[in-house]
Amino acid sequence: MFPRLPYPALLTRLTFTGITALTLLGCDPKTTEVPVPEVRTNSVFIINEGTYNQPNGSVSVFDVAAAKVTSPDIFQAANGRPLLSNVTQSMTVVGQQGYIVANNSNKIEVVTLPSFKSVGTITAGLKLPRYLVAASADKAYVSEWVTPTFPTPGPGRVSVIDLRTNTVTRTIVVGKAPEEMLLAGGKLFVTNSEENTVTVINTATDVVETTLTVGPAPASLALDNNGRLWVLGNGVTNYSNPALSTKGSLTDFAPTPPYTVRKRDFASDLGYLARLRTNGTRDQFYVKTDAAVYRLSPADAALPTKPFLTRGSFDIYGLNIDPNDNTVYVGVAPTFTAPGKFIRYTSAGKAIDSAAVGIGPNGFIFY
């Protein structure tokens, strides 16, 4: 893996399903019926990052009821051509459309659901896009690194996108290497992963309102069931001088001024790819590292020290929780040149099953 190059990791419950409808290619006896995949309810999209600097990122579909992967590469199956995504970073569903963010390809592929047919590509002006969140059916925000984080990260930005025309209408300068974002109380909260800050943008004016100090290397955030916002700081490992490493942390605050923050530290740093996720009722948080998943309640007095589940192979790459039944989905990436897999666990941490998918499964989208 390349921990400081632009690749890879809120998310809305989205479901997607398998392959059913058939299209006839006419009456020519030489033609055959070709199955046209469709995305149906009670399914999961698996976001497969692909090999860094190779356009082989993809999206797989898992049918929950059938307990099987019904399409290893749904875009290829639906469109007859590859996604051509160099680092498939994330995907967001807005209404009847899906927005697939291809980080190193500087584009967002737009598909219609349930057919998963491509209906457009957003490319103009995008620079290393990471995550997209929708403020409405017509407006979205996209975090962008702008420049690679190695060797020296520069200021990032958030672009405002008109979803009616799929065009960028405005850019907002934020901190270095912005990652995941969250909308709450008319504000957009942006994690700046190469700093220890969260940028707060007023969504009525699209102007930066303030910048909050949190733990080092924040990259993900979530709301709890009381409306408080929690930010995971991954911490930083200094390999040349371990004494300069910083610890991982959780910071929480009400998403309204004066943004009084409380920060608590883990025992050590959590790794560059650590992420924070929550269950459907938002009363349980899950923290992913590369070797373990921890679970805690927002009401807990102390941060967890015992993992909810572990993998000694240090290959945990993606994590999300099915909001309907609290099934835990863990993406596993043994390498970035061969297919990965995902494992499903019960809410008690017992493995249910697993399935092979694309390279580097970094996220799960439920519909």
Rank of each mutant, 00 (worst) to 15 (best):
348 A>C: 02
31 T>A: 03
209 E>G: 09
123 T>P: 00
177 A>K: 02
249 S>L: 05
334 P>C: 11
189 F>P: 00
280 G>L: 05
282 R>D: 05
289 T>Q: 00
120 G>L: 12
336 F>A: 03
358 G>M: 07
188 L>W: 08
28 D>Q: 02
219 A>Q: 15
175 G>H: 01
204 A>K: 14
16 F>N: 06
226 N>I: 02
223 L>I: 14
339 P>S: 05
361 P>Y: 10
330 V>A: 11
261 V>D: 08
43 S>Q: 10
41 T>M: 14
271 G>D: 10
342 F>M: 10
352 I>W: 01
159 S>G: 04
198 V>Y: 11
176 K>A: 07
246 T>E: 03
249 S>E: 10
308 F>G: 06
345 Y>Q: 04
302 A>Y: 01
24 L>T: 14
120 G>F: 13
106 N>E: 09
165 T>F: 07
179 E>V: 07
121 T>V: 08
278 T>L: 00
338 A>G: 06
95 G>H: 05
130 R>S: 07
61 V>L: 10
343 I>D: 11
174 V>M: 07
101 V>R: 15
91 M>F: 10
151 P>H: 08
313 S>W: 07
196 N>R: 15
55 P>H: 01
66 A>N: 12
279 N>G: 10
339 P>K: 12
261 V>N: 02
166 N>R: 02
360 G>T: 05
80 G>T: 08
163 L>A: 12
323 P>G: 09
143 S>K: 13
153 P>V: 09
287 V>E: 07
173 V>T: 08
301 A>C: 03
343 I>L: 02
296 L>R: 09
189 F>I: 05
218 P>Y: 15
85 S>H: 02
150 F>L: 08
351 A>E: 15
234 N>G: 13
92 T>M: 00
301 A>V: 02
232 L>A: 12
201 I>F: 12
249 S>G: 12
339 P>A: 06
174 V>G: 09
246 T>M: 06
15 T>G: 11
336 F>C: 06
226 N>E: 11
106 N>Y: 09
220 S>D: 13
196 N>E: 14
115 S>T: 13
203 T>L: 09
193 S>H: 15
136 S>T: 12
53 N>M: 08
309 L>F: 14
82 P>W: 01
24 L>H: 03
259 Y>V: 02
164 R>I: 10
349 G>E: 05
280 G>W: 06
53 N>S: 13
354 S>F: 07
193 S>M: 12
292 A>R: 11
128 L>D: 08
120 G>C: 02
36 V>Y: 12
193 S>W: 06
103 N>F: 08
290 D>W: 03
126 L>H: 04
206 D>M: 07
284 Q>C: 01
285 F>W: 11
34 V>R: 05
121 T>D: 13
214 V>D: 13
110 V>A: 14
217 A>H: 12
68 K>R: 04
230 W>V: 00
115 S>F: 04
260 T>P: 03
22 L>Y: 08
340 G>M: 01
